[in-house]
Simulated assay, not measured.
Amino acid sequence: MGMSVTISAADTQDAEQIFKLRYLCFQSEAELYGNYRIDPLVQTLDSVRAELGADLVFVARLGDEVVGSVHGFTDPDGTGRIGKLCVHPRLQGHGLGARLLRAAESGLTDGRAATRFRIHTGHRSEGNLRLYRREGYARVGDATGQDGVRMILLEKDAAAPAYVVSA
């Protein structure tokens, strides 16, 4: 009998699992850019704990194991910023990333009054870009991260539908 993956708000006891999961998941991004100084790889356990105390963090659980996570907060201008979306490599390709993204969007509109969402990913991260486009995000610009990686900035109106059909 298999277990199903559940999505829920993270709590303080999840900090270490989230920390380790991000480190595992973002290795492929670091390899893609030849840069092992990207934020999720240099983040400390204490900074993950701080996120859990201040921001919105959702996790995907398979039993007691955290197999996915996403982080979000709302800026004073009403922009819900979503980031550090990751799914354990063995469970990628099963829709968990989209489920986590939608959970973050829902949490940022319900309790945190976001009127639009912004997310970013590296310019070579085609899988991420496909997911965000499929979920209704559109490119609004580029930026260079502190780690030197060129990032694609994408936004979506909070009232936009979750699914975009393309011809």
Score class of each variant (00 low, 15 high):
residue 15 A to M: 14
residue 16 E to A: 15
residue 16 E to V: 09
residue 16 E to S: 15
residue 18 I to P: 04
residue 18 I to L: 11
residue 20 K to F: 14
residue 24 L to H: 01
residue 26 F to W: 05
residue 27 Q to W: 06
residue 28 S to D: 14
residue 29 E to I: 13
residue 30 A to W: 04
residue 31 E to D: 14
residue 31 E to A: 15
residue 31 E to M: 08
residue 33 Y to K: 01
residue 33 Y to L: 10
residue 34 G to S: 11
residue 34 G to V: 05
residue 35 N to F: 07
residue 37 R to A: 14
residue 37 R to Y: 08
residue 37 R to N: 15
residue 37 R to F: 04
residue 39 D to T: 15
residue 42 V to A: 06
residue 43 Q to D: 12
residue 45 L to R: 10
residue 45 L to W: 12
residue 46 D to G: 12
residue 47 S to A: 09
residue 49 R to I: 03
residue 50 A to L: 14
residue 51 E to T: 08
residue 51 E to K: 11
residue 52 L to P: 04
residue 52 L to K: 00
residue 53 G to A: 13
residue 53 G to C: 11
residue 55 D to L: 02
residue 55 D to M: 08
residue 56 L to I: 13
residue 59 V to W: 12
residue 61 R to Q: 02
residue 63 G to Q: 06
residue 64 D to T: 14
residue 65 E to V: 15
residue 66 V to W: 06
residue 68 G to P: 03
residue 68 G to K: 04
residue 69 S to M: 11
residue 69 S to L: 10
residue 69 S to V: 06
residue 70 V to P: 05
residue 72 G to F: 06
residue 73 F to E: 08
residue 74 T to D: 09
residue 75 D to K: 14
residue 75 D to C: 13
residue 76 P to D: 13
residue 76 P to N: 13
residue 77 D to C: 10
residue 77 D to V: 00
residue 78 G to I: 11
residue 78 G to H: 09
residue 79 T to Q: 02
residue 83 G to S: 11
residue 83 G to P: 02
residue 84 K to S: 10
residue 84 K to I: 09
residue 86 C to P: 03
residue 87 V to D: 02
residue 89 P to W: 00
residue 91 L to T: 00
residue 99 R to A: 09
residue 99 R to P: 00
residue 100 L to F: 09
residue 101 L to D: 00
residue 102 R to V: 04
residue 103 A to E: 00
residue 104 A to E: 00
residue 104 A to Q: 07
residue 105 E to V: 08
residue 106 S to F: 12
residue 107 G to C: 08
residue 108 L to K: 00
residue 110 D to Q: 14
residue 110 D to F: 00
residue 112 R to I: 03
residue 113 A to P: 02
residue 115 T to Q: 15
residue 116 R to W: 12
residue 117 F to D: 00
residue 118 R to Q: 15
residue 118 R to D: 00
residue 119 I to W: 03
residue 120 H to C: 14
residue 120 H to S: 15
residue 124 R to C: 06
residue 126 E to P: 02
residue 127 G to S: 02
residue 130 R to Y: 10
residue 130 R to P: 01
residue 130 R to Q: 07
residue 130 R to D: 07
residue 131 L to H: 04
residue 132 Y to K: 03
residue 132 Y to L: 05
residue 133 R to E: 15
residue 133 R to N: 09
residue 133 R to I: 04
residue 135 E to S: 15
residue 136 G to A: 07
residue 137 Y to N: 04
residue 137 Y to Q: 08
residue 138 A to I: 05
residue 138 A to W: 09
